[in-house]
């Protein structure tokens, strides 16, 4: 529920009353004017943030733990459509706000503190607290999810006892992994690595490993022994494969360019 604060980005767009046809045109991918590599890098990062492979493990681990069955399929369709929809709308809000507020002033965001300006234009002095709250809620949730996901992956790959519902004492290895993961993450950030650059870089890397994670899922999604009537259609398969291939190829090209060209 706290995540709803992120909707302030969307609200901000409405407050600023942009030219809607301009906004719509902005969402159609266009050829970058100069800096094609950096533009591609941004695109890959956004793709990585939208379809993070960890979500697949994380969600399935939850499904095992809560013992979902066929009756839960409908609920999950709704949750995934609304969840992804919410995320996409917020991302579009952020993009539109950046274009409306930052671009005309010639500001290039190099750190989170500059990005905060986005919300001060529509909300005045409330902008900074709103931005901070959105970032805090987002980061807090992501940190817990990603750390927990690391525990799920290791425990399931190595055959340990695991479960979020167990007492920590009863799955000590599982708990150690997420505890240590959060500690390492905190140390890296405290050591002074710029958080925005680190986020972008990991999101881009995510796209590289996406095919490795998603492809096995795709195989299961098409296995009639597992899913009977609920398996993927030909169109969904095609869309998934196309996104995977496009993302991986783009990531392979632009990540080295971004690292070498490192600004």
């Amino acid at each position: 529920m706290l995540g709803l604060v992120a909707l302030s980005f969307v609200a901000g767009v409405f407050i600023l009353r942009p030219d809607w046809s301009e906004v719509a045109r902005g969402f159609v991918p266009s050829r970058p004017n100069g800096e094609a590599a950096h533009y591609g890098y941004l695109a890959v990062s956004i793709l990585g943030a939208t379809i993070s492979p960890y979500l697949l493990n994380f969600y399935s681990a939850g499904a095992i733990e809560d013992d979902w069955g066929e009756k839960d399929v409908a609920t999950n369709r709704i949750v995934s459509v609304f969840g992804m929809g919410f995320g996409s709308v917020v991302s579009m809000g952020v993009l539109a706000m950046a274009a409306l507020v930052l671009a005309p002033r010639g500001i290039r965001v190099e750190g989170y503190e500059q990005a905060a300006l986005i919300l001060t234009a529509p909300f005045g002095k409330w902008g900074l607290p709103l931005f901070a709250a959105s970032l805090a809620v987002g980061c807090f949730g992501a940190a817990l999810e990603v750390a927990l996901n690391l525990s799920y992956v290791l425990a399931q790959a190595l055959g340990w006892n695991w479960g979020e519902d167990q007492r920590p004492k009863d799955d000590a290895r599982f708990c150690t992994v997420y505890t240590v993961a959060i500690a390492i993450g905190a140390i890296l950030i405290a050591a002074g690595i710029p958080p925005l650059k680190l986020t972008m870089f990991s999101m881009a890397l995510t796209v590289l490993i996406l095919p490795l994670i998603v492809f096995p899922f795709l195989v299961i999604l098409n296995d009639p022994r597992y899913l009977r009537t609920h398996r993927n259609g030909r169109l969904s398969n095609l869309v998934v494969l196309a996104i995977l291939a496009m993302g991986a190829v783009l990531a392979l090209v632009v990540i080295p360019l971004e690292v070498v060209g490192g600004r």
């Binding site: 799955d171 000590a172 708990c175 150690t176």
Partner: peptide, 12 residues
């Protein structure tokens, strides 16, 4: 599992 419970997790 037992070692981590004894030395780390059990103490939290």
């Amino acid at each position: 599992e037992r070692w981590l419970r004894r030395t780390l997790i059990g103490r939290i």
